[in-house]
Design a binder for these strands. Structure first.
Lengths: 140, 140
DNA sequence: CACCTACTTTAGAATAATTATAAAGTAGTT
DNA sequence: AACTACTTTATAATTATTCTAAAGTAGGTG
């Protein structure tokens, strides 16, 4: 018997409306990612480990990559690069900035940073977005 | 006979004063990186290819990685991550920002961006640096 | 419902960037 | 000239990610 509850409906709709078939794996991953209060930062490897450690039937690595890319393309995830050259994803897709604190990533709400001066885009180009990273270190 | 000119002296001193033995490979790489007017952005792979294509005696990949890391640790290079998860290095070590334009990186002088508002660092932490990336796209 | 087809998932191989290893070479000191 | 610690090198190993091609499934269609 297939599990199904009213939570799933939300994610099935979310997937469908993005042109993605709501397969079991995609629904499970969506539920894991989006069914939470706080925004969530993760690498694909971390996502895979957290989910699969709780599951008897594992989801394959390729599916995690496929699904995360699909969700990103659909605009449900934001991607950014960490120092150590791995892709990190963020369930907070609103425009915002980040603290980087030794591998840990903390969101900064967009309105916490405002600019006095910004450069013009080179000729023929325009600004797509502005992203600020504030690197932290320990006091003293 | 060992090649030696007054340019080399500069880089030998630069290496020595950073606690790095001025080996031939390191001097050559330093000369290639720092003996130019404009600042230079590169990945290790690019550096290796540009230098080795002109050389009969090739420098090994590991040495390029070792030397770039050593120069970075000594504060002569800045590192940043590209979208495609490769490390990019910058010979401009002064505080500054970047335009990212489809893989191409363009420096933005520090004084071209000023802040009206910046968030406070979390308790026990302080701000190490603030880095802005302005992503560009084509007009229209 | 039975079937069809395009989209998905999967295990495993392939790739790319980087790091580790350990043997041979070299700088700088004695 | 000899010594020793630091470097370089080729090669293997590792890590993150993508590719491949075969097996599975969603969502029509009749």
């Amino acid at each position: 018997m297939r599990k199904m509850n009213n939570k799933n409906k939300t994610f099935i709709d979310k997937l469908r409306s993005s042109g993605l078939r709501p397969t079991n794996q995609r629904v499970e991953i969506s539920k894991f990612l989006f069914n939470r209060k706080k925004t969530f930062h993760f690498t694909v490897e971390e996502l895979k480990n957290s989910m699969n450690s709780k599951r008897s039937k594992k989801i394959s690595t390729a599916t995690f990559y496929n699904t995360v890319h699909a969700l990103k393309s659909a605009g449900h995830l934001k991607e950014f690069s960490l120092e150590n050259n791995t892709s990190c994803y963020d369930t907070n897709i609103t425009s915002h900035h980040h603290f980087f604190d030794d591998g840990k990533v903390i969101d900064i709400k967009s309105d916490k940073i405002t600019f006095q001066k910004l450069p013009e885009a080179p000729k023929g180009k325009k600004i797509k977005n502005v992203e600020v990273v504030i690197r932290l270190e320990n006091n003293n």
